[in-house]
Design a binder for these strands. Structure first.
Lengths: 220, 220
DNA sequence: TGGTGAAGGATAGTTGAACTATCCTTGGCG
DNA sequence: CGCCAAGGATAGTTCAACTATCCTTCACCA
């Protein structure tokens, strides 16, 4: 199919597709002549994935490009490609500058969190960006004067683990690495809003239950 | 304290504070003379909250202003102010245009989700924006060719509910509405990245466990 | 009590991201 | 053989989030 049809099929405007091609978010079509290229179903899928990363995942074009570049690079092993793609997905947090006042607090909170998760038996590299994200959020909560919810981690972790196992099983069943990679990115980006939305609805339910007394109905 | 000290205490530059004042994200100080205003601790707290909303919550200045405007408006009841602030917090999803092809899919997925949550006994307004967020994510997953994980909702919901109850209890203990509101916004914005980060670490743990065989150690 | 220097408001300028529009060459097709 | 659209290159636009400048006024100090 040509650009015009790719645009129609994917719902992305022609100028935007050109832009994504330039930025390397979408691989070029196979040139059929000097001024003509042919696109396939994989381009339609890729465009949908890119749009999901940008609109739902709120990723920047640069972030999406970097993640997809690693995912597309056959120089790495399956495990490396999946892991690196995962690591590159936002959000990311940065530690405060070395020797700053906040840095001491940051480091202390980080090791508290790391200890707690190690105590739960979790294995992960201690360079995992998610760890910095955790630290940043907890540090900010502390900075606002709230208790560090590190002791709640046990509950949160217990709740989240079965989900992660189920999702991992879903992704692992893809044998083709391209499929597994797309699934990793898609599930990471698209399941996160699902969890957050469910949490907000649960808050509303708890609130209305206490306020209007639906307590006799099953909570679950 | 004056602007310069407020800047120092909050870690936000003077021009940025001026900008936030103009945009209504921070209430003006009490004018002590025509060209002099006095700021208090509440301004320091507000600035920290605003920075958290913008940097961690990835909210736009306009969104933060709207949320804080409702939270600050004493014309509403405590319940309304908490609920509206919650509803206005991003992310938000928009339904496709009426009578479009995707709209039919959208509506179908939305009512599937609503039914499932009602079956779980959850109470919330069916105008809740989180419901649209759920629909958008599921619809996008379906559009990419994945199964709609509606049947997983039961598991997700069961995992999330105790967290929501614990968080609600934490927020409910603030008697001053200003404190409760700030806590609502802070917990919504700052606990979400914690959950997502834990989920990613859980994925990494599951992955390394299967790959390197840590199966004999406790998973939790 | 007068000079100075910062505070604070108004206004305009800057930067970066994400498109979007224009131009121009070329080649498929009639 | 000629026309018109595809596709690449380039430049322009739009918007958000600051950031810098200017200017008046007043607090503080000598």
């Amino acid at each position: 199919m040509h650009l015009a049809e790719l645009s129609r099929r994917s719902g992305v405007s022609v100028p935007s597709i050109k832009f994504y091609l330039r930025e390397g978010l979408v691989p070029p079509g196979t040139p059929v002549s000097a001024r003509r290229a042919e696109y396939g179903e994989e381009h339609v899928r890729r465009l949908r994935l890119v749009r999901a990363m940008l609109t739902i995942g709120k990723m920047s074009v640069a972030q999406a490009r970097d993640v997809l570049a690693v995912a597309d690079d056959p120089a790495f092993t399956r495990h490396e490609r999946l892991g690196t793609a995962q690591y590159m997905l936002p959000p990311h947090a940065e530690a405060p500058a070395q020797d700053s006042e906040e840095r001491a607090v940051w480091d202390e909170i980080r090791s508290l969190i790391l200890d707690e998760l190690r105590r739960l038996g979790w294995h992960f590299q201690d360079t995992a960006p998610a760890l910095d994200m955790l630290t940043q959020s907890v540090a900010t909560l502390v900075g606002l004067g709230y208790d560090a919810p590190v002791e709640d981690f046990r509950r949160y972790a217990a709740a989240i683990r079965p989900m992660a196992e189920a999702e991992y099983a879903t992704i692992a069943q893809f044998e083709l690495i391209e499929e597994a990679l797309e699934a990793t990115v898609a599930y990471t980006v698209l399941v996160e809003p699902i969890l957050l939305a469910l949490r907000r609805l649960a808050h509303e339910d708890v609130s209305s239950r206490l306020r209007y007394g639906y307590g006799d109905e099953p909570a679950l």
